[in-house]
Computed example of a mutant assay.
Amino acid sequence: MRIPLFKRLVIAVLNILFPPVAVMMITGPNEDFVFNCVMFVLAVIPSHIHGFYISLTYFNRKRKVRKGVYPGKPKHLIWSDRVNNGGGSRREIERLRHGKEQSRLGRRNTSRTSGIPERSSSRRRVQEWDDGYKEYAVSPQMSRVGTGRSGRQGR
C-alpha cells in the first residue's frame, strides 16, 4: 500500500505555511519538533528547509522499508526514530539490517584491483551459488603471470 498522495500534499502545504506543524505530524512532539520551532522563531527559511528535509527523508525511508530494504544509518539533524526507521519498528529495521549483512557476506570476497577471489588455497577454485551456477576462478598468483606485474604488493 502506498502513502496516499493526499497525505503528502497536506504535509507539503503545511511545510510551506507552517513547518513545525508538518514536522509534528510526521515525528510527533519530540526533539525534531522543538528544533524546528526554535528555527522557525529565529529564522523562517531554515525551518522550511529542515521541514522538507524531514518529510523527504521520512517518505524515502518508508518506501525502502515497504520494499524490504534496509533504510540506512540515521541522518544528521533527525532525532526521531520514526523518521530514521521509515515508520518501521526497531525489530523490523534490525531484521532488514541483518538481512543486508547476510547478503553481503554471501557474496564472494574479491580483490579490489583484479576482481578475482582472494586467498584461494588451490590454483583453481570453484564457487557454487545457491541457484546451481558454478563459477571457476583462477588464484591471484596465476593472474599475475604474464601481466608484467610482480608478485610484490608494496609498489
Rank of each mutant, 00 (worst) to 15 (best):
M1W: 05
M1H: 10
P4N: 15
P4T: 13
P4G: 15
K7N: 09
L9F: 14
V10P: 01
I11Y: 05
A12G: 02
L14P: 04
F18W: 14
P19I: 10
P20I: 06
P20T: 09
V23C: 02
M25R: 07
M25Y: 05
M25F: 07
P29W: 09
N30E: 15
E31G: 06
D32G: 04
V34Y: 08
N36E: 01
V38S: 02
F40C: 03
L42M: 12
A43S: 13
I45N: 01
I45Q: 01
I45T: 03
P46F: 06
P46T: 08
H48S: 04
I49G: 00
H50R: 15
G51C: 03
Y53E: 09
I54F: 08
S55N: 08
S55E: 08
T57A: 10
T57E: 09
Y58Q: 05
N60A: 14
N60S: 15
N60L: 04
R61P: 08
R66C: 07
K67A: 15
K67E: 12
Y70A: 09
Y70G: 11
P71Q: 02
P74T: 00
K75E: 15
H76V: 06
I78Q: 09
I78R: 03
W79Y: 15
S80T: 10
R82I: 13
V83Q: 04
V83T: 13
N85M: 08
N85Q: 09
G88T: 03
S89E: 12
R91S: 12
R91H: 09
I93H: 01
E94N: 08
E94G: 03
S103P: 03
R107F: 00
T110A: 03
S111G: 12
S111Y: 08
R112G: 09
G115I: 00
G115M: 00
I116A: 12
P117I: 10
E118K: 11
R119P: 00
R119W: 01
R119S: 04
S121Q: 11
Q127N: 11
Q127M: 10
E128T: 14
W129R: 14
D130K: 08
D131N: 13
D131A: 05
G132N: 11
G132L: 11
Y133L: 13
Y133R: 15
K134R: 15
E135K: 00
S139L: 02
P140R: 04
P140C: 01
Q141R: 11
V145D: 08
V145A: 10
V145I: 15
G146Y: 00
R149Y: 01
S150H: 09
R152H: 06
Q153G: 08
Q153A: 13
G154W: 11
R155S: 04
